[in-house]
């Protein structure tokens, strides 16, 4: 073993972190997110140990997957073309940005429908949990989560367009940055008071709260639905504007061609 060579190689890996905040963030990101999500869930379960929390967790898990897959549908589709060096071929074709995004949205939708069906069947077979018990409320829940996932996907893709390969980790990380604040596995009330306004600013928090209401046998909350839908319109519009701006910046700085030929 030669210490000099080990040190040289260590330097090779550490150089990457010196100029890359996304990489540094990634080191701390997953452990912190795990701690937050599972910590808040533990707190919730300790305080509410009498009800059927397994059903809550399974439906939350299936619903969370809608957001995650919708986001991945947009971002990974873009990255697939970066990785295969096909990006420039696409953007020198008579293709509008909006058409590219629409295609990724729709492919994502098809995948999500397939995945949700499979997960629902498995949940019924193995855990005697029937997602259809949520009734018609499933439809607005589904579409609100889908639209939020698309907005997050568009935002993440915009970051990659602007900051390139160094920010690829965000493709997987951003949804989990949102997760602790989204009341997926526990209600907003479990969060510290200062975090609750942030959580209520997330469309998906309203969906998950609404879902728990319905599962407890309460009526579908139109107020929660209204908040989720309204916030989703704002988020999707903001994400679209941010994507357009980052794309324009990438064109001005010549980043698109770098991203497409790396």
């Amino acid at each position: 073993m030669n210490w000099r060579r080990i040190r040289a190689l260590m330097r090779r890996y550490l150089y990457l972190y010196r100029r890359s905040p996304p990489r540094i963030m990634e080191v701390f990101f997953w452990p912190v997110m795990d701690l937050l999500v599972w910590g808040f869930l533990y707190k919730f379960l300790v305080a509410n140990h009498t009800f059927n929390w397994i059903s809550y967790l399974i439906s939350a898990m299936i619903f969370w997957d809608i957001i995650y897959r919708a986001q991945q549908g947009v971002t990974i589709a873009f990255l697939e073309d970066v990785w295969s060096r096909n990006l420039l071929n696409l953007f020198v074709a008579p293709l509008r940005r909006s058409e590219f995004i629409a295609a990724t949205f729709l492919v994502g939708l098809i995948k999500i429908i397939a995945i949700t069906l499979v997960l629902s069947v498995l949940a019924l077979a193995f855990y005697d949990f029937n997602l259809l018990n949520l009734g018609l409320a499933l439809v607005p829940f589904f579409f609100n989560l889908l639209i939020f996932g698309w907005a997050v996907g568009l935002f993440t893709t915009a970051l990659i367009v602007r900051w390139g390969n160094a920010s690829e980790a965000l493709a997987w990380g951003i949804p989990f940055l949102v997760q602790p604040l989204s009341a997926v596995f526990y209600p907003v009330s479990i969060l510290p008071a200062w975090l609750q306004p942030l959580a209520w600013a997330m469309p998906c928090s309203h969906v998950f709260e609404g879902m728990r209401d319905v599962m407890r046998g309460e009526a579908f909350s139109w107020a929660q639905f209204g908040w989720a839908a309204g916030l989703n319109v704002i988020y999707l519009l903001a994400a679209a504007l941010f994507f357009r701006r980052m794309f324009d910046v990438a064109r001005e700085k010549g980043l698109l061609s770098k991203l497409g030929t790396q």
Binding site: D81, S84, R85, N86, L88, N89, V92, A93, G260, T261
Partner: peptide, 21 residues
């Protein structure tokens, strides 16, 4: 008129590729 122009042009480069899969 980017879209109308690109409809009548095309591009190839040694530094781009079509998806290998």
């Amino acid at each position: 008129a980017r879209i109308a122009i690109l409809q009548r042009a095309n591009f190839t480069s040694a530094y781009t590729a079509l998806p290998g899969n």
